[in-house]
Design a protein around this nucleic acid. Structure first.
Lengths: 161, 161
DNA sequence: AGTGAAAACTAGGCGAG
DNA sequence: CTCGCCTAGTTTTCACT
């Protein structure tokens, strides 16, 4: 009697929790056959609901112990705003969000040291002609959590053929 | 002649790019045997360098099209600061970073609508006794990128037996 | 959409260099 | 640390419902 979509949400949630979970395990958890889950996962991938898989990495262990948020604002507000493309080559930038508010973008960056952050800030200012405001992360109580999906959410979009 | 560590960095980078890559493929990409890669991956997992695997999800497709950053500040600065624990039950909060600066934490949240954001803000203020400052994300040019790891970074920490 | 079974491929353990 | 072999288990396709 529950909507079919329940199962897709369950699959997405399970894979968010363990991106390497086998189809066999997904099948057991969802009560479907292996081939049915397989088919659903492939369909979710094709539709872009599942956009890929990644490992969660300890940035401290790979020599990038420092995280910061950098808000940027164009120095010349009349110039075309192509900051994301201009900054894309800086691999220390993990994410770039266009935001409402005083500044135009928020960047999340990972660097090895204060010196590395200073250097990155100079590169950002030079590459995109922006002023910056930096907020250094001291610790991260949690990250990469996945929300509980209830039937109110996603039903319309996930339910299309 | 190159440091052995080169290979571990390569493995981490490959798994960051495709968290479901098979050991067979990892072996081919790194030039090692399957069992050698297998052993290295298990070691990286045990050391906590690889902390897990997850799927990348299109939040719009699952009915959570709205992302925001919420900075919070305690209303009573003399009270013990246990905001992360007090907020942990709110699954709309994807990440919680303790930060330097005017505010004490930055939260990243996913909601279904402005109404959902409003409700979440009330819950946050009530649960942690904080004031909030919200920055709504308009679009995300990129996210979840993984930095290029060069030999300068990570060598010390990754190189230990 | 779902199922079960066959074929191809992968994971994970073992002994050896 | 690395290799290659081996078996159990997983992925993927297919014909059928």
């Amino acid at each position: 009697m529950w909507r079919v979509e329940e199962i897709d949400r369950r699959i997405v949630t399970l894979l968010a929790g363990d991106g390497r979970m086998s189809f066999t395990d997904l099948a057991r958890e969802t009560g479907l056959s292996v081939s049915a889950v397989h088919q659903r996962v492939r369909r979710l991938e094709k539709r872009g609901v599942l956009r890929g898989y990644t490992s969660l990495v300890d940035y401290e262990a790979i020599g990038l112990p420092m995280t910061a948020f950098i808000s940027i604002k164009p120095i010349d507000p009349s110039a075309p705003d192509d900051a994301p493309e201009r900054l894309a080559h800086l691999t220390a930038i993990e994410a770039c969000h266009s935001v409402a508010g005083d500044e135009s973008y928020i960047l999340k960056v990972r660097v090895s040291s204060p010196g590395g952050l200073e250097e990155l800030l100079q590169q950002i200012r030079a590459a995109a002609n922006v002023s910056t405001r930096t907020t250094v992360v001291l610790s991260t109580p949690y990250e990469h959590r996945f929300p509980a999906l209830d039937e109110a959410e996603g039903s319309e979009t996930l339910d299309q053929p």
